[in-house]
Design a protein around this nucleic acid. Structure first.
Lengths: 144, 144
DNA sequence: TATTGTTATACTCTATAACTATA
DNA sequence: TATAGTTATAGAGTATAACAATA
């Protein structure tokens, strides 16, 4: 009964691991071609979705808040992001992409040809199925 | 005509970025709970598929071969892997999981409950669809 | 008192270059 | 000559602990 995983859960986990390896490997190479480390590229990717406080950025990137100081320092030194004072809470600093930062973030994604071509091989129906499946697996928050 | 990406390729890339971010975040936390860094956990995950030469390990992990020395050193010191002399080419060292290493690799995967529960929410047909889609996007090698 | 961001510290990861032992 | 693995080095990432400013 109950919560025993179905027979091929292990297979799917393995396939996810392989897929992530392909995707992340291409991401690292893409960031490197803009002279950015994986963490710096990841920060730009996250900030592309909108400004974020240092703390929030740390949580999204699954690392300690103290690390973000150095990562943002280096991105700021290169003119890719800037720190803005928080509106209500004066302790908070919001990190915002500059125009150049947006350009670089876009360039990183554009360079991920293998992944994009993989998606382009799917027809419209399959692309919609993939979207639905990913949302259900990774983005649904079961009431708990 | 031709190679222009379909309208929602950008959406799917963003969704992949979010989904794999969730997966990777859970992986990092899972490895940390076994007192392993992301790279060490990744190495165990790769070796779980079978022994690999130092060089091959570096390629799979998308890093320079010189890094693997230190990573394997630390895993070996903890008894999770061992170096074996190559059969034909005496320059080669194959890295092999120990029994304890296998146990830890399994524990890392088993601890990824959020992802597993996400997969468990799918019925058999959807799970098969997801497998097919991931294989087509990430693991197919267009003749080129 | 609790929280945000920073700093100091020690360890790990990373690429580059130079080395050795094989091939 | 070329390749597999190692070592040395410098810069970056990482968690922990302690701190100042603010809430």
């Amino acid at each position: 009964m109950t919560e025993a995983p179905r027979a091929d859960t292990a297979q799917l986990m393995e396939l996810l691991s392989l897929s992530l390896g392909v995707y992340y490997g291409e991401f690292i190479a893409s960031a490197a071609s803009e002279n950015l480390t994986a963490s710096q590229g990841k920060a730009l990717t996250v900030l592309r979705r909108g400004p974020a406080a240092m703390r929030a950025l740390a949580e999204t990137m699954t690392c300690d808040a103290s690390n973000i100081t150095g990562i943002v320092d280096r991105l700021e030194k290169r003119g890719l992001v800037r720190r803005e004072a928080g509106a209500s809470d004066r302790r908070v600093k919001n990190v915002v992409l500059t125009a150049e930062g947006e350009r670089v973030a876009d360039a990183i994604r554009a360079r991920m040809r293998t992944t994009q071509e993989g998606l382009d091989r799917l027809d419209d129906e399959d692309r919609d199925r993939l979207r639905s499946l990913l949302e259900r697996v990774f983005l649904s928050h079961p009431t708990a």
